[in-house]
């Protein structure tokens, strides 16, 4: 069983996102084991991109900070390799297709496997284009995480049937970022998936409060939180570890009780 599958075994998963290299590589490197210790069941590390079209303003700003601090894909690979020696939590890269393609898709996937990355999420590679990266991921033994959105409807069956690891369920239209209310009928979306596949479903986009995380995890297999964590990092800079871990503990408790 893959590390990713284990994250969902007999429990609801709390998935935490950080932008790699925000505010610097050292902070991310210190943060990952601490977030795992605080209860994060899976950690997504964003490879910063100059033009993150699926992100709202909070993660856009984090990407800018990380790039300004000199973060590169190679520096993140090296960092992950060091972290992997310390923790067993599943680690997933989230990035855009251009950094992957430009690195050399096969080389990128191989490097992921060598450094202990378990999967990748590439929001601008939809089902119809997935062969662009999937072959390389399979060859390297990492999982390409698929996404569904509120607009997916009848597309859910084909996407869910081929999904690996877990299915990233986008809660709302638009881009990442904290929302006061999630209006999509998430339960209907998840029920649709479950008819097609037994892949674990985690919900992301817009989740910030323990109440929201609890509510989302109660109709699915887990909750993904990005912008709310990244905002704490933006506010606290290098001193973000304590406030982020405190937040992760609260969110984990809310998800676990769902």
């Amino acid at each position: 069983m893959s590390r990713i599958s284990k994250a969902f075994e007999n429990k609801k998963a709390f998935i935490a996102f950080v932008t790699g290299g925000d505010p610097d590589i050292e902070t991310t490197e210190a943060l990952i084991p601490q977030m795992a210790a605080a209860g994060a069941d899976l950690i997504e590390i964003g490879i910063p991109f100059s033009d993150p079209i699926a992100e709202g303003v909070v993660i856009q700003a984090a990407d800018e900070r990380a790039l300004k601090a000199g973060t590169t894909t190679d520096k993140l690979f090296d960092m992950v390799k060091r972290v992997r020696g310390k923790v067993d939590v599943p680690l997933v890269f989230m990035t855009y297709v251009n950094p992957v393609y430009t690195y050399g898709t096969e080389r990128f996937a191989k490097r992921c496997a060598e450094c202990g990355i378990d999967g990748i999420i590439v929001p601008d590679v939809p089902f119809e284009e997935k062969e662009e990266v999937n072959g390389a991921c399979e060859a390297a033994g990492i999982e390409l995480i698929s996404m569904i959105a509120p607009t997916s409807r009848e597309r859910i069956d084909m996407i869910a049937r081929q999904a690996k690891g877990f299915l990233y369920c986008v809660s709302s239209l638009g881009v990442t970022g904290v929302r006061s209310k999630i209006t999509t009928n998430i339960k209907e979306m998840i029920d649709h998936v479950k008819k097609a596949s037994d892949i674990p479903c985690a919900i992301g986009f817009g989740i910030a409060t323990p109440e929201q995380a609890h509510e989302m995890a109660s109709v699915s297999d887990g909750a993904i939180v990005g912008s709310a964590i990244v905002r704490l990092i933006a506010q606290n800079g290098k001193n973000c570890i304590d406030p982020v871990c405190q937040y992760v503990r609260e969110m984990k408790a809310a998800v676990a009780s769902a």
Binding site: P126, E129, A149, P150, T151, I159, V170, L173, G174
Partner: peptide, 12 residues
């Protein structure tokens, strides 16, 4: 060419 866009936009 191609159609490299987030899932949300594919149906549109």
């Amino acid at each position: 060419g191609g159609q490299y866009i987030p899932e949300t936009l594919v149906p549109a």
